[in-house]
């Protein structure tokens, strides 16, 4: 997918570009308002990651520009402003999603993939990974045509892993993705382990390969390499 990252914080920009690199993704970036406007008027992107606090202009104006240009690019707002007004204003202006800083890169990737998938819908909202086929519309997973009975949480977890394949996903990121970051949880994520264990067992029993690796107490990696 083709992605434009509009972010003025250099360190954060590098991390994002680094994380999205590979896997056939093309990433471009803009660090200020005018560069961003230039990019969006010249090219089309599958998804634009837009930081609202931009030097040289108001981030929300980029959305207005996109509308004026009649572009259909997906937009994910990333902002440090945890303000409902901004969130609503952004979504009203045609943004597809809103992510508050600080966020996990895995969460960002999963949201971007979801937006791109929705934009390129074409009748089938599916992810294919080797023999695993996840149907997001029907919330159903099939392995070689056979349905794997997953709970809702296990399904969400699998989709999260598939959006972040070949990446190490931390337990914190998984917990926040599945239960929301406002649920002030205790610091131990044993219950994540249970869900991951069950998911892995069900996939293997249905005939899939063992793709889930535990990474030294920090998190997990879903990979076929």
């Amino acid at each position: 997918m083709k992605i434009l990252v509009i972010e003025d914080e250099q360190a954060l920009l590098e991390s994002i570009l680094d994380y999205f690199k590979g896997d056939g993704n093309i990433c471009e970036h803009a660090s200020d308002f005018s560069a961003a406007v230039e990019k969006i008027s010249l090219y089309s992107y599958d998804c634009i990651l837009l930081d609202l606090g931009l030097p040289g202009g108001e981030g929300l104006d980029i959305l207005t520009r996109l509308k004026e240009l009649k572009k259909n690019d997906g937009v994910l707002i990333i902002s440090a402003r945890h303000s409902l007004d901004d969130r609503l204003a952004g979504l009203d202006l045609g943004a597809d999603d809103y992510l508050v800083k600080p966020f996990h890169l895995s969460e960002l990737k999963s949201r971007v993939t979801a937006i791109v998938r929705r934009k390129n819908f074409n009748g089938e909202n599916q992810i294919q990974f080797q023999e695993i086929k996840a149907d997001l519309g029907a919330m159903k997973v099939e392995i070689r045509g056979q349905v794997v009975p997953l709970t809702r949480k296990e399904f969400e977890l699998l989709v999260y892993f598939l959006s972040n394949k070949n990446k190490v996903v931390s337990k914190n990121a998984m917990a926040e993705h599945l239960w929301g970051d406002e649920m002030d949880m205790s610091d131990d994520f044993d219950f994540i382990y249970t869900h991951v264990k069950n998911l892995r067992k069900k996939l293997i029993e249905a005939g899939a390969g063992d793709y889930l690796r535990s990474v030294y107490g920090i998190g997990y990696k879903f990979t076929d390499q």
């Binding site: 994380y19 440090a80 800083k101």
Partner: peptide, 26 residues
């Protein structure tokens, strides 16, 4: 909020990036 969240976001993203670099010891 913005000023304090941005460095935090950087730390978080760098941690996520660090996680991808290589295998770690326990």
């Amino acid at each position: 909020s913005h000023e304090m969240m941005t460095p935090l976001a950087v730390i978080n993203s760098k941690l996520d990036s660090l996680l991808q670099t290589e295998e770690f010891t326990l």
